[in-house]
Every structure is written in C-alpha cells, then in structure tokens.
Simulated assay, not measured.
Amino acid sequence: MIRVQQQDFDPAEEYHALRDSGSGTGAIATFTGLVRDSGDLKGVTGLFLEHYPGMTEQVIEGLVREASQRWDVREARVIHRIGRLALSEQIVFVGVCSAHRGDAFAACEFIMDALKTSAPFWKKEITGDSEHWVEQKAADRDRSQSWD
C-alpha cells in the first residue's frame, strides 16, 4: 500500500493494518519522519513538499518490490505527505511486516534510505523570513548506495 497525500495519517492505524495483514507475521518495523526546526537553514518553521504525480508512486512501488526481493517482506506500507507542513507534523511513514525482525528492520531501513534519494520529491524549508529549496545530501546518497 502506497499513498502520497496532503492529509495526515495515523501510525497506529497503519501498524494495525500491517499486523492484521495475514498469517506468518512475526515482526513489524516502522519509521515515522517528522518536520524538525533545522536543516539547511536554522529556525525552520515548516516545509513545503512537492512531487511528480504518478512517477512518485511508481518509484516507491519499485523500492518495495526490490525490498521484497532482498528480504522476506509480507507487506509494506509507505505514506508520504506533500504540501505545507508545520513543525512536528508527520511527513513519512514506512512500515514493513515479516516473519523475522531482521528482515523487517532491514527492509524498512532500505525503503526509507532509498526513498530519500530515488523518489521524485522536492522539499522547501520555510523560516520566518525566507524559503530555501533543499538539495539532496551526500550522506543520504551514501546511505542509499551502501545497500548496493
């Protein structure tokens, strides 16, 4: 299940959907990303996120498919928000269920790392008096490439 949306999400609902997805699940790993008050700029008051509709979902589907080829993924759920977001709002949810914790942890981390560098999202940091489009970080590229 993949969704790109403006509205918020409930991580507990997503967890329960993973837990109830079928037999054989022995582990669920989740990640929820939040808007923080610093990044490239100090004093960030919010973010604005854009994406490439249609292509974004296809890229994320490909990441989930790749994770499923590498690890025992029973189900994965990825939600990424777009639009204007305030401090502490949820940006992204990645959840993976598997028979074993190692596969769940690895697949969840892989999907999140790859999402940061592969999916066509653009993020603008907003402060009280400026806006700044965020460039992809070398550290994010290095983490994503470490899975190769």
Score class of each variant (00 low, 15 high):
59 V>S: 09
82 I>G: 00
64 V>P: 03
88 S>N: 11
60 I>Y: 04
81 R>D: 01
54 G>N: 02
63 L>W: 00
61 E>W: 04
67 A>I: 08
87 L>V: 08
76 A>V: 12
76 A>I: 12
62 G>L: 05
72 D>R: 12
77 R>P: 02
89 E>W: 01
50 E>M: 09
78 V>Q: 06
62 G>R: 14
77 R>S: 13
73 V>R: 01
60 I>K: 06
50 E>T: 14
49 L>K: 00
54 G>K: 02
78 V>M: 07
47 L>I: 01
56 T>I: 06
75 E>A: 14
58 Q>P: 00
84 R>I: 01
81 R>N: 00
76 A>G: 11
53 P>V: 10
82 I>F: 06
63 L>I: 04
89 E>G: 07
83 G>H: 05
60 I>C: 09
48 F>K: 14
74 R>C: 06
78 V>T: 06
56 T>K: 02
53 P>R: 11
81 R>V: 05
55 M>F: 13
87 L>W: 11
73 V>K: 02
85 L>N: 00
47 L>P: 04
75 E>S: 13
48 F>L: 10
47 L>D: 00
76 A>D: 09
84 R>L: 06
62 G>D: 10
72 D>W: 12
81 R>E: 01
87 L>C: 11
55 M>D: 03
68 S>Y: 07
62 G>M: 06
54 G>R: 05
57 E>K: 12
83 G>Q: 03
47 L>A: 00
55 M>I: 14
87 L>T: 08
85 L>I: 01
75 E>P: 00
61 E>Q: 15
61 E>G: 10
69 Q>G: 15
61 E>A: 15
73 V>M: 08
72 D>N: 15
62 G>E: 07
64 V>R: 02
77 R>D: 02
73 V>Y: 01
58 Q>D: 10
57 E>M: 04
89 E>P: 05
69 Q>V: 03
73 V>E: 02
51 H>S: 13
69 Q>N: 11
47 L>S: 00
89 E>Q: 13
73 V>L: 09
69 Q>D: 10
67 A>Q: 05
61 E>C: 06
75 E>R: 15
77 R>K: 15
76 A>N: 10
51 H>V: 00
60 I>H: 06
64 V>K: 02
85 L>F: 04
64 V>E: 10
73 V>D: 04
74 R>T: 07
75 E>N: 10
56 T>D: 01
78 V>C: 06
64 V>C: 15
52 Y>E: 05
85 L>G: 00
67 A>F: 03
48 F>S: 09
85 L>V: 01
72 D>C: 13
70 R>S: 07
60 I>M: 14
59 V>A: 12
55 M>Q: 10
81 R>H: 06
78 V>G: 03
72 D>A: 15
57 E>W: 03
57 E>H: 07
56 T>S: 14
87 L>D: 08
84 R>F: 12
65 R>C: 09
86 A>N: 10
70 R>Q: 13
79 I>R: 11
88 S>K: 13
59 V>Y: 12
